[in-house]
Design a protein around this nucleic acid. Structure first.
Length: 906
RNA sequence: GGGAGUUUAGCUCAGUUGGUUUAGAGCAUCUGCCUUACAAGCAGAGGGUCACAGGUUCGACUCCUGUAACUCCCACCA
């Protein structure tokens, strides 16, 4: 075997073992007799690049999948990407612009061929990046939400839901993104508080002669406060609260809209808040949802003054003979227009004042553009009807058939579903599944899976032999395709009841960010009940958001988002995985700090060095103990060194395995990793290896060596799901093998022996206490001592005394029945330890220490006695609590006695 | 405006039905060590009236009420 390198070479190991696993097909899954463990990846945007959020998310999935694989499940983790219509279309449009092509100059087919070209070239980079993280995905199953079958599946469910009466088409006020020129669902709108202005505008009373106003200051007016003066030309009424005394006499009168001088009525509705602004609200049904509601209620017309890009248009004003001033507004952007109209109203002396105002404004999740409310014809899903049909969508989560981790998100889920609104599923985009509705020139339409069927249906429905049908120009919301992801990656919709879908679906666990609980998680549950009549997964692990160490969101603007690939290059995949997991309490936000990656790298180093140490022993096994079990026994007893550490560690290992198992069941991955980390670093390296370590150039008992390698194997196996590459590398360095760790099956842990664990604790405690005493006496590590132990139960020290001697550098340990005077003394429980060294001891400081301890113990004793002498405590406390307090008292008394005796002997 | 959650060591967090010494861990800090696996290390140490004020109880970090601060979700008061 070649020379072992000084440090772990993560670059080489990451590549080698990941590729090795791919070649061996370890990550591929096909249905068999085993129980499946299925996870579908939350498909990242096809335009995406790997960021810290993905890193957290996918590391967790990989740990779960790798662990399941080692536990005998048929583990299957399905990769893929989402076509992300808005984001991708925006990127393609931007690319075309660079080439000097505008989208409007292209036909739909031409545009789509550019889009596909783009997708083939840049799409899916993120999947390659996941390989760098060593994600054990079954790449042969890579899916895309616009694959042919997937596309057909989406169309199929659309038609089905339409026929079920759940999908409908309607004229509604929608959230309009003027940048991407499409409608958005409510979930895609993010409200942000922004600084804006409140404009106080005078609306003059229309005089009876219907003449345009002259600018006389005596004219009566009603003052309206608005944040959006640019919509004034679309005003159709002024609304006041009927209970507002200020305006009682105004109701029913008419005022003139500034600039355009349209006569509008003053109406009353208790929607208006008397307290806000002036208590008078201008009604613009074309540009505000609430205004639209009021408009409908009072049968007002709606006048749209903004086009699809948010620019002024006089299209709906032509009947009013717009003035040249108004015509000049044509094509002006809404925000520029706001300023111009504000100026123009000022010129008319109709602007009273402008106040600063902080308001909530809806923005597009994708483009960040400020949303316009716009009346348009869109496709919707009737969610109330849907929920009536599938109440399990809610109940399955509330009764934990689908378990949320953390469970508190059940409330959020519940609240959203109980107040659910219709889902706008159409988008005015080309990149996506095109809505399968066909229209004739009169607006009659049918919904069908393809044109041929549409024609058939059309003829049947409308009894017209009209074959000139045009398909809807719009496509579907991306989430309308991703909500069937867990089933359609197994062709569960396009090829129902196929073997794979039946085997892998429902999936086992979903791991995703809590920010898409409505977008995606809720809708997958809906889809599960709608299309398969069962839940889509059993557990949902919600990750928090990754923030920087100051708690800020990671964003490109702040520049606080580290380059993940660089970090992997620098620290290695294992260290990155370790770093992100160790600081990741389940369900909470994660404050990312590069120092946790250093901790991961240091852990790599620790493991590597432990391996180097054990390898060093390999050639130094003592031969005699190999002969028979009997002599091993004999030797162990005579030396007393090898027996205890191996016995203790095997029990400690079982104890930790048990803890890890329980934590993993509760998805406490971070806590589980901490247990493993401490087990390896503290128990294995700091204690066990030191205990069995032979003296300089001394041989090691073969039995102990073999046990040590076995322990190491087990530790590597526990750690493997978290840090797959270094564990595999060490597993093979440690010993010649013809199999790999990553698919090695776990063995069941055994019940740990409590007694030996207690003895281990005692030993550690004694060692630490004596080392502390050595340090206080400024004894150098090399200075030897003689230790005298005064104890009632010598037996508990027999098996550990040699280890103890080695660990505290004692040349001799003796048992005594009485105090040894003029020595450093420490007490543990009722046992006393006297340290004798050549070095003179500092009696004064020793006394001081003992006095300090004594007063602590006395205070403590007081508190216990007080408790015990309380009659009510004695009467009410449980017997075991009482007994425990009695023991505390006895121990404290014993210690006080010990300390006092020691003080006398000094 | 409504709802949910959080507040424990310098930082990030554990603390399971109230009792396991006067509350734990990791990181950071301090002290001493280049001891032949590891200075990316070893051996130790210090550091918290458990946000605040009441209450229930023999006993409260834990249960109840109130207060404060912060976070998130939902809701288009123009």
């Amino acid at each position: 075997m070649s020379e072992i390198s000084k440090n772990f070479n993560h670059q080489a190991a990451d590549n080698y073992w990941y590729n090795h696993a791919l070649q061996q097909g370890y990550f591929n899954s096909t249905p068999d007799e085993r129980e499946p463990y299925t996870i579908v990846i939350p498909p990242p945007n096809v335009t995406g690049v790997l960021h810290m959020g993905h890193c957290l998310n996918n590391t967790i999935q990989d740990i779960l999948v790798r662990r399941a694989r080692m536990q005998g499940f048929n583990a299957c983790w399905v990769p893929g990407t989402d076509h992300a219509s808005i984001a991708t279309e925006a990127k393609v449009v931007a690319m075309l612009r660079e080439r000097g092509i505008t989208k409007s100059s292209l036909t739909r087919d031409e545009f789509l061929s550019y889009a596909w070209e783009w997708k083939e070239k840049y799409g899916g980079i993120i999947l390659q990046q996941l390989k760098k993280l060593s994600c054990s995905l079954d790449w042969s199953r890579t899916s895309f939400t616009m694959d042919d079958d997937y596309y057909k599946a989406v169309i199929k469910i659309f038609v089905q839901l339409y026929n079920d009466g759940i999908i409908y088409r309607g004229l509604r006020m929608v959230n309009w993104d003027p940048v991407s020129k499409t409608a958005l669902s409510d979930e895609e709108v993010i409200f942000k508080e922004i600084d804006s202005k409140l404009y106080y505008v005078k609306y003059f009373l229309a005089d009876n002669t219907n003449q345009p106003i002259n600018q006389s200051t005596n004219q009566q007016f009603i003052m309206v406060a608005t944040t959006r003066p640019e919509t004034i030309l679309g005003d159709v009424a002024i609304c006041v609260n009927p209970l507002d005394d200020r305006y009682k006499n105004w109701i029913g009168k008419e005022v003139l809209v500034p600039i355009i001088n349209r006569k509008i009525k003053i109406i009353a509705d208790d929607y208006v808040d008397i307290e806000f602004g002036t208590g008078a609200l201008k009604i613009t049904p074309a540009h505000d949802k609430n205004d639209n509601e009021i408009g409908k209620k009072h049968q007002l017309k709606s006048i749209n003054t903004l086009d699809e890009e948010g620019r002024f248009t006089t299209a709906e004003l032509v009947n009013e003979n717009p003035s040249e001033q108004v015509l000049a507004y044509n094509g002006i952007d809404r925000f520029e227009l706001r300023k111009i109209i504000s100026d123009d109203i000022t010129k008319l002396n109709q602007l009273e004042k402008i106040e600063d105002y902080k308001g909530q404004v809806g923005t597009s999740e994708r483009t960040g553009a400020i949303i316009e409310s716009r009346l348009s014809l869109q496709w919707f899903m009737d969610m109330k009807t849907f929920m009536k049909k599938h109440p399990q969508t809610l109940s399955s989560v509330m009764n934990d058939e689908i378990k949320f981790h953390p469970a508190k998100l059940k409330n959020t889920y519940n609240h959203w579903l109980e107040n659910i609104k219709d889902w706008c599923i159409s988008r005015q985009l080309w990149w996506g599944q095109r809505i399968p509705a066909w229209y004739d020139e009169n607006g009659n339409f049918v919904v069908a899976e393809n044109e041929e069927k549409a024609k058939e249906l059309f003829n049947l429905k409308f009894k017209i032999k009209n074959s000139k049908l045009l398909q809807d120009e719009d496509c579907l919301d991306t989430w309308f395709s991703s909500w069937i992801w867990p089933m359609e990656v197994f062709k569960g919709i396009s090829n129902p009841n196929n073997e794979e879908a039946n085997y892998y679906y429902p999936t086992t666990t979903l791991v995703t960010g809590h920010d898409i609980i409505f977008f995606w998680v809720a809708r997958m549950i809906m889809a599960g009940y709608q299309f398969k009549n069962q839940l889509p997964f059993k557990d949902v692990y919600f990750t928090g958001m990754v923030r920087d160490k100051q708690g800020r969101k990671m964003s490109k603007q702040l520049g606080n988002s580290p380059d993940l690939l660089e970090l992997i290059e620098k620290y290695g995949a294992d260290a990155v995985r370790f770093g992100i997991m160790i600081s990741s309490p389940a369900g909470n936000d994660l404050l990312f700090d590069e120092s946790s990656l250093e901790q991961g790298r240091n852990f790599n180093n620790k493991l590597w060095n432990a391996m180097k140490l054990v390898k060093m022993w390999e050639g130094r096994k003592s031969e005699e103990s190999e002969e028979s079990g009997e002599s091993e026994e004999l030797e162990s007893h005579t030396h007393g060194l090898s027996d205890f550490p191996t016995f203790w560690f095997s029990n400690r290992l079982n104890e930790a395995k048990l803890e890890v198992e329980n934590l993993m069941k509760q998805f406490q991955l971070s806590a589980a990793l901490k247990i493993i980390y401490s087990l390896i670093w503290d128990d294995f390296c700091s204690w066990y290896l030191e205990w069995v370590k032979p003296g300089f150039e001394q041989p090691i008992e073969t039995n102990v060596y073999n046990k040590t390698v076995e322990f190491f194997d087990e530790l590597l196996q526990m750690l493997s799901p978290f840090m797959p590459n270094i564990t595999e590398e060490i597993y093979h360095q440690l010993k010649e093998r013809n199999h790999d760790l990553t698919i090695k099956q776990n063995t069941k842990h055994q019940t740990p022996n409590k007694q030996i664990l207690e003895q281990g604790k005692l030993l550690k405690n004694v060692i630490t206490t004596l080392r502390e005493a050595r340090a206080k006496n400024q004894l150098k590590p090399k200075e030897e001592i003689v230790l005298y132990i005064q104890t009632q139960n010598k037996n508990s020290y027999f098996s550990i005394q040699n280890i103890l001697a080695k660990q505290i550098n004692a040349k001799e340990i003796k048992f005594v029945n009485e105090a040894v005077s003029n020595t450093t003394v420490v007490a543990i429980e009722s046992d006393k330890f006297y340290m004798v060294s050549d070095k003179e001891i500092d009696i004064e400081s020793l006394k001081e220490e003992l006095q300090k301890d004594l007063s602590y113990q006395k205070n403590f004793l007081q508190s216990v006695i007080k408790k015990l002498s309380n009659d009510k405590f004695a009467a009410n406390a449980k017997p075991e609590v009482l007994a425990f307090e009695e023991k505390k008292k006895a121990d404290a008394l014993a210690r006080i006695k010990t300390i006092e005796e020691s003080l006398v002997n000094l």
